[in-house]
């Protein structure tokens, strides 16, 4: 219970601070404030993908439908956050670089994640039997997760990056941020991650109860 209150307070404080403090980057001005929302949302997209994959592996090794349910919910949430990350990124791109879409490596990666989530959900809706659905979608989720590291190497060779490589994280992978900016950013990251966990837990509970009421469930 206490961590839910903490999450609420944390996100509330972050939202207030983001708009009160000076913009994190002077040249871009006010629009650079999106950094505090866009990056955590993109982070949650990847986190959800990881959670879905871990649940898929757990399902395949233990054959408990709860894990399948968790993988499905994590993917649905991941899909939602991927859309949010894409849209918020596109709005920022329009203002900072002049066009909504540039096929920048990170735009491409988030778009591919969106495609994977879409394909995963399409696969789930195409199979009716529950354990077959669970099996096949778990296999697909793991396969898709394996290919993602390749994209990290392959995609930047096709498109030039517009994302900052020097301003926030420099080439030696050292974070270059004023202490206050760093603090707000990390709090925002934590806040969004906790928000994800909260929604995720709630969804899992609701779906299990829903299945119990319908009486169709094999989940204890």
């Amino acid at each position: 219970m206490w961590w839910k209150i903490l999450t609420g307070l944390l996100i509330g404080t972050v939202v207030v601070l983001v708009f009160l403090m000076p913009p994190p980057q002077k040249e871009l001005g006010d629009i650079s404030r999106i950094f505090f929302f866009h990056v955590p949302v993109a982070w949650v997209t990847v986190l959800a993908f990881l959670v879905a994959m871990v649940n898929s592996i757990l399902y395949l090794s233990r054959k408990d439908l709860v894990y399948d349910l968790q993988a499905a919910i994590s993917s649905q949430l991941g899909f939602l956050f991927a859309i949010l990350a894409t849209v918020s990124g596109a709005i920022f791109a329009k203002n900072a670089w002049g066009s909504y879409w540039n096929w920048d490596p990170r735009e491409t990666s988030v778009f591919i994640l969106l495609l994977i989530y879409g394909a995963y959900l399409a696969l789930r809706s195409a199979i009716e039997m529950e354990d077959r659905k669970a099996n096949l979608s778990a296999v697909y989720s793991i396969l898709a997760f394996i290919t993602v590291p390749f994209l990290v190497f392959v995609v930047p060779r096709v498109f030039q990056s517009l994302h900052p490589t020097d301003s926030i994280v420099n080439s030696q992978i050292k974070i270059q941020m004023p202490p206050l900016v760093l603090l707000v950013f990390l709090s925002s990251l934590l806040g969004f991650s906790l928000l994800f966990v909260w929604i995720y837990n709630l969804e899992v509970k609701v779906t299990i109860l829903h299945k119990k009421i319908k009486g169709s469930s094999t989940i204890k």
């Binding site: 495609l115 394909a119 696969l123 195409a126 096949l136 898709a144 290919t147 994209l151 392959v154």
Partner: peptide, 23 residues
Amino acid sequence: KASVKGALFAVLSFPILLPLLVT
């Protein structure tokens, strides 16, 4: 094994094949 086959094969394959295609 899916009951609706249709375009599913291409939809599922494309994201996984993308690194390969680019290369």
